[in-house]
Design a protein around this nucleic acid. Structure first.
Length: 509
RNA sequence: GCGGCCAUAGUCUAGUCUGGUUAUGAUCCGAGCCUUCCAAGCUCGUAACCCGGGUUCGAAUCCCGGUGGCCGCACCA
């Protein structure tokens, strides 16, 4: 391997070769940027991440729902995405470069009011103020709007859009949730599903997609409960790696470890319930297998906040491919969404508090799954070394796509037949396992290392004599000999992490 | 979207400037032999000029368009 190749290329090459992800899709027609196919191992890995997410949310008392990915235009008018999700753009009449109209006006005529202006009004401002192309100073064309939502049609003539986030489709169910939760707030729900954004020019492979899988947890909560969150007590002393906006203004990039209650005292978080959401998001990422030293929580600067956000912190993962990657947003959306949908739909989206109608607030945890998927492969990657002449993936055993590989030491029938029996038992126990007889034993270990299989079971001549098999550990390349009949149970504890391989070795000596 | 560079087996690559045999090499992959634990070896085999059009007797090679990639600008609610 030549060292000058970019790290992200190495990851993409490995992903292609071993069936994690392929693209851009559809490859045989040349591909469209922003679309990828998941191969067998990528899909397995994604399922494991989704399971980790589900388990985490369910334990935190969230209930999963699923909504359509297409909604009529009225929904997106109300949510603000039809107007707020657009960029006003203008094209230079001479050199053809495209600019954000609002940015150009702000730069060249800073005193002009542009908030809420229509494209026609922006065009007028450009003409009157003499705004010109930033690169060649030529006149600009009329302002057009570019919407990042993908448009489609229902029936003959009803405009509709593919959802750019799952959150909005969840909010539309508010009244149904009230019934389900027997009118008791807070109500916690989450959704895992596809969302679509028509990015102008997606780059960086799996990190900016036009179609991706979003996970979004929502808590509907009354303002008075946000400062008095029952689950807060249990987590207040947990330390989180925080990078506040103040620290960023000072040019800092390293997070500071701080307990959650200290962060509240210092004003980094405003509300207990929001702080708990940040903690929950962080713990979901820990459960997906990310290590503490690759993560930081970064607060949004005032200028980065979305149209609905009151406060926003991101989880960022450090990668060797792209540096810090934004992977998850925790948003205090206030009551913006429900208020808007109440106004536009004319349906009552409030609860009664002291006989007064109150629109609850929403706290949200939102992330795409493809980004963590890529980041986990990136973080797990171990380059070839003197010990191993292929690269390998150090997935945490719980999320590794293939959990177990079973080999006869050699392809001879007297080993192959018992090996196949053991393979069958491992599959019956519910593991995702692979049987391999091709090539030398060393080569087969390498093949499994390359896709991150944590444990290999090998059947040798001793197996025939005394009924033991060996378990080989990916990380240490050490082996331990166990009885056949204990194998499945031991593998289970190793993969769950309730027993470490090292202690198993000590016990067997 | 704009500008610059680029596109050859699954992967990496030679050949393109200067058009002309059966498109180079490695690796991977498959079959077989051998092999009692970390890429051994040997034999055989599969597999490629991004797509479309043009110039030409003849195009991987030259020209145009498209698609995709990288870098810069813009964009990333």
């Amino acid at each position: 391997m030549s060292s000058e190749r970019e790290f992200s290329d190495i990851i993409a090459g490995l992903a292609k070769k071993r069936g994690f992800f392929w693209g851009p899709s559809p490859e045989i027609y040349g591909g469209s940027a922003g679309f990828f196919d998941l191969g067998p191992l990528g899909k397995l890995l994604k399922n494991r991440l989704e399971n980790a997410i589900r388990t985490s949310f369910v334990r935190a008392n969230f209930w999963e729902v699923e909504c359509p990915t297409v909604s009529p235009a009225a929904v997106w008018k109300a949510s603000g995405h039809l107007d707020g999700f657009i960029d006003p753009v203008t094209k230079c009449t001479k050199c053809g470069q495209i600019f954000r109209a609002d940015n150009l006006i702000e730069e060249q005529a800073p005193d002009t009011l542009i908030a809420g202006k229509s494209v026609e009004e922006l065009t007028e401002i450009i003409t009157k103020q003499g705004i010109v192309c930033a690169s060649c100073k030529s006149p600009l064309g009329p302002v057009d709007s570019y919407n990042l939502m993908m448009k489609t049609r229902l029936g003959l003539d009803q405009d509709a859009y593919l959802r750019p986030e799952t959150a909005t489709s969840t909010y539309l169910l508010f009244r149904r949730f009230l019934t389900f939760f027997r009118d008791k707030l807070p109500m916690s729900v989450f959704q895992i599903g596809k969302a679509y954004r028509n990015e102008i020019s997606p780059r960086q492979g799996m990190l900016r997609l036009r179609e991706f899988t979003q996970t979004e947890g929502q808590i509907f909560i009354l303002e008075e409960d946000e400062q008095n969150w029952p689950q807060f007590e249990a987590i207040k002393d947990v330390e989180l790696p925080l990078l506040s906006y103040q620290a960023q203004e000072k040019g800092k990039t390293d997070p500071v470890k701080m307990t959650i209650s200290d962060a509240l005292k210092k004003g980094h978080f405003q509300k207990q319930a929001y702080a708990w959401c940040v903690y929950l998001a962080y713990s979901i990422f820990r459960n997906m297998g990310f290590s503490e030293d690759k993560m930081r929580l970064r607060q949004h600067m005032e200028t980065e906040k979305a149209h609905y956000a009151q406060d926003a912190w991101d989880i960022e993962i450090h990668t060797d491919s792209f540096g810090w990657v934004e992977c998850c947003g925790v948003h205090d959306r206030g009551n913006y969404d429900l208020t808007r949908h109440q106004e536009f739909s004319k349906e009552k989206l409030h609860v009664k508090v002291n006989k007064q109608p109150v629109v609850p607030n929403v706290l949200e945890i939102a992330f795409g799954i493809e980004r963590p998927l890529f980041c986990l492969i990136d973080n797990s990657f171990q380059p070839e070394s003197e010990e191993r002449d292929t690269s390998w993936l150090r997935f945490p055993p719980e999320v590794a796509p293939i959990q177990i590989a079973v080999f006869p030491l050699m392809g001879k029938p007297e080993l192959r037949v018992p090996a196949q029996e053991i393979f069958g038992a491992v599959m019956d126990a519910g593991f995702v396992a692979q049987f391999d007889v091709g090539g030398s034993i060393g080569k087969r270990y390498r093949r499994q290392d390359e896709v991150g299989t944590p444990f290999c079971v090998t059947i040798d001549y001793t197996t025939i004599e005394d009924g033991t098999v060996t378990i080989r550990d990916r990380d240490s390349m050490e082996q331990v000999r166990v009885q056949k009949k204990e194998l499945v149970e031991i593998l289970g504890t190793l993969i769950k992490g309730s027993v470490q391989f090292e202690s198993l070795m000590k016990a067997s000596k």
